[in-house]
């Protein structure tokens, strides 16, 4: 019996889909059986980010309406033998094509076969959100260090707290720019965590490689040198219950001079 985790944010464009794709991949790399569920019916993206767009035959709505079995609709990611699957959303219908009760049943079924079911939630707090949350046991709230995004995260946490079947949500702060936080132009992590007062699951530095990787249909996690990749891997390990320290935000651009200074112990 696996766990179902919904990844949500309220605001759009903060990195829910990227986070879902990368956490799923990272968990698969750690040897877990993972199923990704895209609930953004009508505006599906997860398949594109995963590079599985061409292999979709059936989708979530087909399953819910009984046109095919769940097993048939699942798209297998060949890069991870039998570890990572995707249940894509329909592109032709809209959010009302599915009811929360049906989602719950579907996720319940998937939980039998997989260790983790990651549910990618659409932006907003309407039907799509209700569908995504219906089957979840846990929630991850993604936010960026912007006031508007934190405000929406606050709203979403409020709504999640009302859902009794969801354990208290955990926070992922995405797209942090170390130098801006340092100069005080960006909200800092402590401030956000204190404000939202939920557990911090991880922080991810802003990284251009993430965009590049998404465009190529390869989650950034597959590139072990990138900072964002390490951040996602750390989050995956924390989901598994390991305790991993937070990544430092200091940029690693060491000039020759600072290296020499560090060598002599000068700060």
């Amino acid at each position: 019996m696996g766990e179902a985790i919904v990844i949500t944010s309220g605001k759009g464009g903060v990195g829910k889909t990227t986070t879902t794709a990368n956490l799923g991949t990272a968990l698969a790399l750690l040897g877990k059986r993972v199923c990704l569920v895209d609930t953004d019916i009508g505006l599906r993206n997860l398949d594109v980010v995963m590079g599985l767009e061409n292999r979709i035959i059936y989708d979530l709505v087909d399953v819910v309406e009984g046109r095919c079995t769940v097993q048939k609709a699942l798209v297998k990611d060949k890069r991870f033998d039998d570890k990572l699957y995707l249940l894509p959303a329909a592109q032709t219908s809209d959010k009302t094509a599915v009811a929360p009760e049906q989602m719950k049943q579907l996720v319940e079924e998937l939980k039998q076969d997989y260790d983790y079911v990651l549910i990618d939630c659409p932006a907003g707090i309407e039907q799509g959100f209700k569908n995504a949350v219906a089957g979840a046991d846990e929630a991850i709230v993604v936010t960026t260090p912007e006031v508007s995004s934190v405000r929406d995260a606050d709203r979403i946490i409020g709504l999640l707290e009302k859902e009794e079947h969801v354990k208290s949500p955990r926070l992922v702060i995405n797209r942090i720019r170390g130098h801006m936080v340092k100069s005080g132009d960006m909200l800092d992590i402590d401030e956000i965590v204190m404000h939202l007062s939920i557990d911090l699951l991880g922080i991810i530095a802003d990284d251009e490689n993430v965009i590049k990787a998404s465009n190529n249909g390869e989650p950034i996690v597959l590139d072990p040198t990138s900072k964002a990749s390490i951040a996602y891997r750390n989050i995956a390990r924390r989901i598994l219950g390991e305790s991993v320290p937070l990544q430092s935000l200091e940029s690693e651009q060491k000039s020759m001079f600072t290296r020499i200074k560090r060598f002599f112990g000068v700060r």
Binding site: D154, R155, I157, G158
Partner: peptide
């Protein structure tokens, strides 16, 4: 509790809130 964005807490008498009122609450 924490009164979060979009939430409204209404009482008839005096209110003693053990927690925060976040922006939008």
């Amino acid at each position: 509790k924490i009164v979060r964005s979009g939430q409204v807490l209404h009482v008839h008498g005096d209110l003693l809130l053990i927690g925060d009122v976040n922006p939008g609450g």
